[in-house]
Amino acid sequence: MAISPIPARLLNRPTLINHKNMRFLISDAPSDSNLALYIAEFERHNTTDIVRVCDPTYATVPLNNLGIKVHDWPFGDGEGPPPAIVRDWIELVEQRFGKDPEKEPSSAIAVHCVAGLGRAPLLVAIALIEAGMTPEESIAFIREHRRGALNTKQIKFIMDYKPRRARKSKCTIL
């Protein structure tokens, strides 16, 4: 039985999404056999965190040794994330990028699911909405950079998503 060689480059390169003070890398799931290629991409973009929203397909030790924190927040394929994951995701984005939209990002958060077309772009859409985009703008922006992203159920989730800033504001009638 012949062992297939490790590819010299990734077949599906991660997609860089830049908006205001945020940088995200959306990708498909690495495996132990190609993790070194992903690590090169993560280092190139100064990735501090990886959000894994699918079942594990690689060991996290090499990433942890580089100071990259892996967050395991799996949720169903083709579905929207549960409220606890949305809360944790928004908190991570705010911790890494702050709240100053003019500040140039010095790092990136990588997020991946199996194919990099559903769950991962959905989380990035939530961050974009929290940063002021409309749901429609976030969908168009992500699809402009990552063709085939987001299915019908996920688009509905995005369209129905209410940003935290809207929930925090209280209208007082005098």
Rank of each mutant, 00 (worst) to 15 (best):
V93T: 05
C113T: 05
G76Y: 15
F97W: 07
A84N: 11
G116D: 09
R96V: 06
A120S: 14
K99S: 13
S106W: 11
P105G: 05
E102P: 13
G98Q: 08
G80F: 01
D100R: 13
P101N: 06
S106I: 15
P81Q: 05
G80I: 03
E104M: 10
K103N: 14
S107R: 05
G78Y: 07
F97A: 03
A120Y: 10
G116Q: 08
F75D: 03
P82H: 03
E94F: 07
D77N: 06
W89K: 01
E94T: 06
P83T: 01
P74I: 10
R96F: 07
E94K: 10
A120W: 11
Q95L: 07
A108D: 02
L123P: 09
G118L: 05
D100V: 09
P74F: 09
P81I: 01
V124W: 12
L92W: 02
A84S: 13
A115G: 11
D77I: 04
V114L: 15
P101F: 06
G118C: 09
I109D: 00
L117M: 15
S107P: 01
L117K: 13
E102D: 15
A120K: 12
R87W: 12
F97C: 02
P121D: 04
G98L: 12
V111N: 02
V124F: 14
A108K: 01
W89S: 00
E91F: 08
E91V: 07
I85N: 01
R87N: 14
P101Y: 05
A125G: 13
S107A: 02
F97S: 02
D88I: 11
Q95P: 06
P101V: 05
F97E: 00
D77G: 01
F75S: 03
E79G: 10
C113A: 07
I85T: 00
K103A: 15
K103R: 13
R96H: 06
K99D: 14
W89P: 00
G78V: 08
P121S: 04
R96Y: 01
L117F: 14
V93E: 03
H112M: 08
